[in-house]
Structures are given as structure tokens and as C-alpha cells.
Design a protein around this nucleic acid. Sequence first.
DNA 1: TCGCCCTATATAAGG
DNA 2: TATAGGGCGA
Length: 824
Amino acid sequence: MSHPDADAKPFRRSWQSEKNNTRRLRIYNWANATYIANENKIRFDARKSIIQPQSAPPSTGPITSQLGTGTPSYLDGLNAEQALAVTSIDGPLLVLAGAGTGKTRVLITRIAHILATRRARGQEILAVTFTNKAAREMKNRVGELVGHAVEGMPWLGTFHAIGARMLRYHAELVGLKSDFTILDTDDQVRLIKQLLVADNIDEKRWPARQLAQMIDGWKNRGLGPDRIKAADAGDFANGRAQKIYTDYQARLKMLNAADFGDLLLENIRLFRENPAILETYQQRFKFILVDEYQDTNVAQYLWLRLLAQPRNDTPANVCVVGDDDQSIYGWRGAEVDNILRFEADFAGAKTIRLERNYRSTSNILRAASHLIAHNEARLGKTLQTDVGEEGEPVSVTSVWDSEEEARQIGEQIEQLQRKGDALNSMAILVRASFQMREFEERFITLGLNYRVIGGPRFYERREIRDALAYLRATHQGADDLAFERIVNVPKRGLGDATIKILHDHARASAIPLMLSARQLCETEELKPRQRSTLHALLAQFDDWAIRAEALPHHELAEAILDESGYTRMWQDDKSANAQGRLENLKELVRSMSEFETLGGFLEHISLVMERDSGEAEDAISIMTLHGAKGLEFDSVFLPGWEEGLFPHQRALDESGRAGLEEERRLCYVGITRARYRCKISLAQNRRIHGLWQTAVPSRFLDELPPDAVAVTDTGSSYGGYNYGGRQTASRFDKTDPFQSVYQSPGWRRARRQNADRGSDPGPLIEGELVARSVNSGSAYGVGQRILHLKFGYGTVAGVEGNKLTIDFESAGRKKVIDSFVKSG
DNA sequence: TCGCCCTATATAAGG
DNA sequence: TATAGGGCGA
């Protein structure tokens, strides 16, 4: 721990006000004084030391050489590659950083280095991350390193926060006002639904959610409505997707709103149409740093390209950090290709590989490396352990079903606990969130403290969204979506019929909904009852808008929630979670007082607000593999290694080989979260949506190196997972090396179909073998008697693609895949 | 307009 | 199995 915040604070103002080099130098000395003054009170970690100007590296240019020689203290403790990555600040640089190699530390130290050597001031550095968490961590750690620089770096943030900031500044150039609303997914879907209805498109057949995803995808690829090709739009609404997209964009402008995609896409448009503006940013940003570059999508890439264009033949100082092996967000638009192409994209780019792993034992690292080597599309790194321990082998345990899996993991946790390990040092990483429940239930009976990370976020909760809608409608009268959300919440007797009248008028006159409501209150259009209710509501909004001028906004919020009857609505609600909702509302009002303006608060909540994780208590973490990226634990449990679940069926069905490779990277991410212990398990039977299904061991198990793995069997399991001896080839990739299970008619049919289609005889993707859920009918019919290798004899009760529902004579009703069944 | 009942649906989730 | 959202009757 370095000096506490209280000590750093007095110097913040000085940092903010500094304007030139002389002053800055003095400030560094002040910072140094902080350190000295506290020396006898606080034990100081040299690696997190304050920058000392007299000891900048000599190699970085004339300015720094004046400061003397010697290695600056912030470089202490970095290995050679890390130090090189920190100090190579001229020209494009790709830092390929494997799991646990100190990537974040390099990024942070690099910023400190740029500041210390005075190559740029804080406000001349653009540093982008994906998550608020990463941005916050970077802010804090740079602050620790430099003493106080946090406020000095206005352009350190997420892609979206920075995009929003730029867009607000130039909003009028893209048809928005600077106080535009940022819509989230829920708003988007509701808006699109309205457009579909307006166009008489059957919302059942063509769900708004699906189109919202398509539009999102287009925006991720940097495509505006004018650039969609017919093939992109598919047959959605019989080819009208592009038209709706166009309408959607027009609607957003009318609502003075932008969705998340627009925060970047509109910036790109802005830069392209206004080269002068782009140039001011290019001049401003002397250094650009990007975290998790493997997660960037096309739009983010284009945005960066624009900002990082070479100027006057000088290449931009853009540094991207990432790991192609940890790219797990292809499904939300990330392009691994961006990182694979970096050297070609930025002329003269250097690449530095960080391969020294400071996290895991060699067994864990070997398992991860061996597995990931099965991927074809990668830049290739070899991680070396620096932990110096072989450690326990990675364990693989086969159990009968998911219930036993939870029981078994619970026991292991208790065992570790008895040994003295903290629950905080353990995590269960699942592929899909439905797996979490079984663990929660088990831990409740055991009385084990656990913490679920993920789930609905604070501002996605209904009561928070409702409250925000009231505030948004007060703040920004053109926010139709907000107004519509709450006109009848709490129930006021203003139902669909009334809303439709408001809408029709609004659309006909091209005015916002609230204005439409005002005008209709002046006429006889509405029934007297609705009219007077609506009139009263509008009067309240007027009142709130007036009071907003004078009242502190958290008090205003409280008044709005009380006077609108919203608080009362939940007070009168007798359901179990009503109390919690009221507390959330209180928390919302409380958090508002931390902001100076209502606008500032609304910006914060749509871009930043997160759920409090409550990390103080000792508890085991349960989270998804995606959620675990970037974290580390002493002991990691990886349950559910079964075909169909992990790798997930949908990934295979929808993205084939690429999907499989992404699943494998996810697998790699999971294993490399572990420092000392990595415990994999699989169940032979799993209940999905209430029905039991037999499970096939995950192919990823075959891809682990036998000498780093120990297989155990709980004994109660049927057959078990007999690992070892067959790891030479994946049973899913090569010609079938097994003679047992895979000789069933289903299997043969799958093979035959594959051949008939004339598709390449190369790797078979799981979807074609085991669970093709569409297109291929089953050879079995209802009523047919069959034999299943595990469950014995039974009768087919239902057929759905190649999935059979079977009433077994001894095992009861189960869902199975036809390739594991013979006619009996 | 409200509220109940029925049915369709269920990977991951950042901003 | 759980839930959310739509349809329909009062």
C-alpha cells in the first residue's frame, strides 16, 4: 500500500492548475515531498513509487537528459520486455501480452513514463478501455504512481464515455443537441417495436429484439443505414430491415437521442465530414493507448485509425495491448482480426511479446498452452511460468449429474477452507448463467458465503429505469421513450388506447409526445377522464421543471418520486421484492447528491453506473467465464465441461469453426485465472429446461496434456470419463478413432449426410455430429422402441429434429440425441 | 382499462 | 423449470 488518499489530495489542485514545464517540475517535487513527509508513517513500496524527475531514463530524448541519469523508480521490478514496452514510446507498438504477464501494469507504467519524461501532458494522452472497471483501475493506479494525476487525464476512459464526450461537444454537426439522451438496449427495442408496428410488420414473426441486434451489428461494423447491402439485411421483414434502420436513425435524431453504437459511429461520421475537427484531436493526442485491443470492433478500429493517422509523415504514437488468445467477444462484434492485422495496419509497428507469466503454476500453464495450441488463427505465444512451482496437476472429475457436481465442489471448498484458504481466493466459473443456481442452492444448505457476480445491473432494474424515466422526461421534454414509459406508471387510467391517440397526433405533427399530449388536452379528442388525468400529470411535469431550477436535483428526484405516486406504488406492493426496490430507489437518490447537475448524473448513470459488488466479506465468487476475464484466484473451479454446454451448442451452430475457436479461447481464459489450483468437472447428466439430457464429455478435455492432468472419478458415476490414452486426436476433428459409441445409426447417418453434402472432408464440427437441431429429421418415430447405451430400453415419446424424448423403462423420461440410440 | 391465464422461450453481456 | 409478454374476457 502506498500513501493514503488523504495525503495525495492537497496536491490535486496544484496538478490541475499547472500550465507549463517549470510548474510541473515543482509539482513533482511536491509529490516527492509527500512521500518524504510520510516516510516514517507509511511503508512505501518502491515499485509504486512517485515519479522522481531527477531520475528519468537517459535514452528518451533531450528534455529528459537534463533530468539526470539512472533508472527511474517506476521501472523497478519490470522485466526486460515490460520495460521495453514501457519505454518504446515512439511510433506504433503492439504489446502481445499473455494471461498474467502484467499487461495492465505495463500500460499504467507507460502512461507514468510519458508524463515523467514530459513527452506529453495528461490531457494530451488518449487512453481507452472497454469497461468502466478497467478505466477506474487505470485512473487509480496512474494516480498512485504519479501521486495525483487523475484529474489531469480527461481522455482516459471507455470508448463510449470518450465518444460521448466528443459527441456532446460537436453534437449539432450530426443533428443532435449537446444534451442528447443515451438510450440503452431496452429503449432501443421499444423504439424499434414502435417502428415495426407503424410499418404493419408482424412483430411476432420479426421480433424487434432481433432487428435491434442486427442494427447493433451493423453499427459495430461501422455501417450506417445507407451502407447496408441487401445480403446483410437478409429477409428480415421481407427485406424492409434497411428501411426500418433508416427510420430508426431519423427517430433518434427527433428524440435527441443516441444509442451506444452511435456514440462511436456518429463520431466517425463527424470526423469524416469535418476534417478540421479531426485534425484538432489528432494534434491534441500525442499518445494513444488502447487496452484489450483484441476486443475492438470495426467501428472502434475505424475511430482509432482516424485519430491515429500519421501526421506530416510522422507515425502516430499508438500503443495497443492485448492477447489474441483471450478474444472472447466475437459475438458482440469484436474482430480478432484487428490485432492480427496491427502490424500491417500501422506502418513501422513494433511488436513486443510478454510471455513471462507471474500468476500460475507450470501445470496450469501447460494445460492452458497445450489446449490453446489447437487453435489455428493465432499469433502464437509461449507462456513461461515465473512462479517456479510445478504445483498440483489440473484435476478432471466426472460426476453423475449437476447436483453431484455442486455437492462435490462444495466439499472441496470446505476442505480448502479447513486448510486455511479464504473464500475470497476461490471462484467457480461457469459457461452459462443457469449453471449458477445449483451452486447457490448447495451453498445455502452448506452455509457457505458466496457472491454472484453478474446478473442484472443496477440501472437495468425496473424501478431504477422508471425513476430515471421521470427524471429524463423532466430534464429533456423531447424524450418520448421516457415519457411513454411512465405515463401510466403508477396506473393512472391512461392505457394503450389513449397512448395511441397521443402517438398518432405526435407523428402527424412531427412533435414530441409530451407536446402532443399538451395539445390534445386543449381539444375534445380525449375522453374527459383521461384528459383531466393527463392534464394534471403535465401540470406536475411543469412544476418539476420549474423547481428543477432551484432545488438540488436529489431533492427534486425525491419530490418527483413522491408526488407522482411512484414511491407509494411500491409501498403498497406486497410482493417480496418491493422492499428491495424501495431501497434501490433510496440508493439512487442518495447517489445523485454526488453530482453537480442532473445532466451529469444522467450521463453517469447511462454510461457508468454499476452494481456494488460488496467485496468486503469473505465469500466465494460465482460468475461466468466471460465475467472472469482479467481476474485471478488461487483456486478455480470449472464445472460443466460437456459438449453442447462447453463448447456451447449455439456457438458451434452459428459460427462453426470460428465459434469453436472462440469457445476454446474462453476455455483458455478459464484455466489461466487459476494461480495454484484448477479443478475441472463434468456431469454425465444435466437438466436443461427441466428435462434431463445425457452429456458427452467436452472435446476440450481431450486437448489437455495428460502429464499435467489428474483424472478422478467420484465412484458414484456411471461409466465415468475415461480420459487418457486417446488424447492424440480430437474425436471431433479426425476420422472416428473409436469403435464404441459412435457406431450407432445416428452417428453413421451424420457422417453420411456430411459426405452427401459434398462439404469438405476436413474437420467435422460438432453440430453436424451430435445435435443438429434443425434441418435433419430423425430416423426414429413416436412409439418406436429403442435401446440407449446408458439408459437401456425405452419408447420414443417425441421427436424434435434429432433430439428424442424417450420414456425409458428404468430411467424415466429423458431427452437424448438420436445418434446415441439404436432401434431395439 | 385492468388483470389473469396461457404460451413461447431460454449463451455469453460490455457501454 | 421459471419467466415474461401477449391475448382475451370482465
